[in-house]
Amino acid sequence: MIEVSGLRKRYGQTMALDGMSFTVTPGRVTGFVGPNGAGKSTTMRVILGLDAADGGHALVGGRPYRSLRSPLRHLGALLDAAALHPGRTARHHLLWLAHSQGLGVRRVDEVIELVGLAPVARRRAGGFSLGMRQRLGIAAALLGDPPALMLDEPVNGLDPEGVVWIRGLLRSLAAEGRAVLVSSHLMSELQDTADHLVVVGRGRVVADTGVAELIEAASGGRVRLRTAEPAAAMDALARAGAVVAATGAGTVTVSGLVSERVVAVLGGSGVPFSEVAAHRATLEEAYMELTGDSVEFRAGLRASGSSRSSGSSGSWGDGR
């Protein structure tokens, strides 16, 4: 279990962490998401005792990381897959880490096998692709067979096969009862992996919620309607008390009425329609809605060409 409580850290004028608090519980994959610069990496460095926080504390299994005698047996971390000496072989990289924890060469060979690096284990890491480096970094994180794992953007640079592999790996690690924290700046990477999300922006937690609840909330009970006569349909539905919006040629989004009522109203008014469906938001949409009030994040949204209006943050606005 990893507990982060009230972390504050300032770099010059920049408030990197501004009361960051969350808990990574065992048995599930917790996604750690937010735009670049939101404080994800800083939080991870503070958890590892690499950076000192100005306030608050971070505990691994109830203890500060720097007080752990064999820290890699408590928390395995992958921060930067490029942090390798190019002249050292993959096996030797893992071997010195193993020695630092009192582990032997057998465990090294096990994790090499586990991440699929056996054929290149005796090759120097300087010649490795980013994907191979990610695998080596994950092997290092797994070395101490820790109850908690923390991976910063582990999907980066992996080929599609590697992406599928790591999703399976993360799920199985969580299924074994480990606490797994995976950061990403891309929501879609976490859609099929994470059970729980900690969404951060500007150094603090914006949302701390289950993935299912988040999507539920973002879907907002809206109904999507396809019709050849959108004007007539909107008129009829508005009279019935719904909030309507044309969202494309022949597409209308309806809020305030469940789909059965929409069908009844349209049928009663004689407006033809081809499809009525409950709208289901993607995690990406839910995330954007959630972080819409973040200035930094709006800039990111505009850059990506999206233009969704911000919704209310609702019951999951601040999960703490």
């Binding site: 720097r66 820290p71 921060l79 630092s100």
Partner: peptide
């Protein structure tokens, strides 16, 4: 950073 994570 890897070294310090292993030997704090």
């Amino acid at each position: 950073r890897t070294s310090l994570a292993a030997v704090p």
